[in-house]
């Protein structure tokens, strides 16, 4: 399972990277989401306990590790906020340069 997980997380990360590097800014935004998904999955999987039942006080059996879950719960919400902000930035850039092509954003070249 761990090997499958590692491969999947790596694949998600790679796909996210590829999207991030494309010229179409919408695709870059998509890439960002995929990467944060990959990272959240990774964090979730490195908990100390591989649970069989959910982390509830009344549950019987090996519970899943509650700590990384609480942490990524926070991470998911924060990444949504960050993502929205990135979108706003992309939008401002698109409006400023009148393009959705990141290669046409020339403000940085001299």
């Amino acid at each position: 399972m761990e090997i499958i997980k590692s491969l999947s997380i790596g694949a998600l990360f790679g796909i996210g990277l590829y999207q991030l590097l494309r010229r179409n800014v919408i695709r870059s935004a998509i890439g960002l989401v995929i990467i944060s998904n990959a990272v959240n999955l990774f964090l979730l999987s490195i908990g100390a306990y591989d649970g069989v039942v959910e982390a509830y006080a009344k549950a019987v059996g090996q519970r899943s590790d509650a700590l990384p879950q609480a942490l990524i719960l926070t991470a998911i919400v924060i990444s949504l906020g960050g993502f929205a902000f990135v979108l706003a930035l992309l939008y401002v850039i698109a409006a400023r340069y009148r393009t959705g092509d990141s290669d046409e954003v020339k403000g940085l070249s001299h």
């Binding site: 761990e2 090997i3 997980k5 590692s6 491969l7 997380i9 790596g10 694949a11 990360f13 790679g14 796909i15 990277l17 590829y18 590097l21 990959a38 990774f42 999987s45 490195i46 908990g47 100390a48 306990y49 590790d65 509650a66 700590l67």
Partner: peptide, 29 residues
């Protein structure tokens, strides 16, 4: 594509490393 593959491969190895060496008990949980 090359960069993405390299990044993906690196993260895969990183995951394997992390999973193989993660602690099996926690003080906090």
């Amino acid at each position: 594509a090359l960069l993405a593959i390299a990044g993906g491969a690196m993260v895969t190895v990183l995951c394997l490393y992390a999973f193989a060496s993660r602690p099996r008990t926690s003080l906090v949980t």
